[in-house]
Design a protein around this nucleic acid. Sequence first.
DNA 1: TATTGATTTAAACTAGATTTTAAACAACTG
DNA 2: CAGTTGTTTAAAATCTAGTTTAAATCAATA
Lengths: 202, 202
Amino acid sequence: MAKNKNTEQKIFDAATELFMEKGVDRTSVRDIASKAGINLALMNYYFRSKENLFDAIFTNLVKENTKDLLQILDSDLGLEEKIRKYVDAYIDMLTTNPLLVPFFMAIIHRSQEKITQMKVISNLYGTEIFSQQIVDEGKAGTIRRTDPSHFFVDMISLITFPFAIRPLIIDRNEMSEEDFNNFIVERKEHITGLLLKCMKEC
Amino acid sequence: MAKNKNTEQKIFDAATELFMEKGVDRTSVRDIASKAGINLALMNYYFRSKENLFDAIFTNLVKENTKDLLQILDSDLGLEEKIRKYVDAYIDMLTTNPLLVPFFMAIIHRSQEKITQMKVISNLYGTEIFSQQIVDEGKAGTIRRTDPSHFFVDMISLITFPFAIRPLIIDRNEMSEEDFNNFIVERKEHITGLLLKCMKEC
DNA sequence: TATTGATTTAAACTAGATTTTAAACAACTG
DNA sequence: CAGTTGTTTAAAATCTAGTTTAAATCAATA
């Protein structure tokens, strides 16, 4: 009963890494077993099937990585401060785990059946509260009237897309991983500035 | 010799569609054969292997879809006009074939060995000439000094990312395909405005 | 210590995929 | 017309994947 959680966790962790690195379809159960250092059949013993294991991992990744961000969006900060915090936290999160974006991109197209679960992800690009805030401040004249749906898409595009094409950026600009991370840090200021500028009259 | 090209082309076309719809790994040679209405072995006769066929298709897709865009970037239009044309042409191209973005995203992470071939794609986000133009106009004071590498990333992020998460946007906003296309058309003006605004002092 | 249930193992099974082979066919060439 | 070449077919070989089985091991406890 002690080794239980241990083995189950080892499978879960190994599979998570492999799924994100190589993609679900190019990862075999044998790969997982070998990486986790366990017997082939144990994957089925604990998770019944590969697809099941995938579901568990997917759900977990969503939960783990959206919590803080949603909280920021729904907080009662002012718009400028909120955007600053959000961009900052989102980019930090992705820097810690740069494979999240390509992984989710792949899943969106691989498993469209699971699209409902993914609404959680899509909330990342704008909750009701945040949306309302933009409309309200537009009416109040603090910012110019802005269509929230375009604003959301702008925001997550600017934040996440570089991670989606990370290998390309690194290769093209002959960057090291560190160079890339610096580039991304630069973008924090850059994106925030861009978004705020675009909301102000001028 | 007449039917040659015919069969080869049928395989090529069927595979292209399937690869883009379901992804390379979830498309079997049997799927391709059946869609193309040909015998299973013919794929190997013409292309030697599935991976080979994939290479051919990939190269072709890159060539077909980058030509016009690169031409715009390297033309001698003024910056504003150039950006306007580029955004317009790029979005039109992707609207015609909305699966291109997810396909390329998948490939970038699936086949990192082929990353060199992909430099062609990465040129999409900025040629030497275009880059120089931004620096020059910055020095001249026509626009404010702008780091081309960030500007490129901004530009392609804003243009392509919505296509990368198309199913999510459609589902979340309860859109029809047509709604989505309208949304994208709106973005043409929106993105151009945003990019130009961000280049001007204010 | 014997029993029980959970865990682990090696091996087998099943299904499906890619690739190969060898023979049949058609069209053209000398 | 015979033969060569390129094309197509059906079948088989090969390989790899996910899953299942049944026996072995282990740990806890009665």
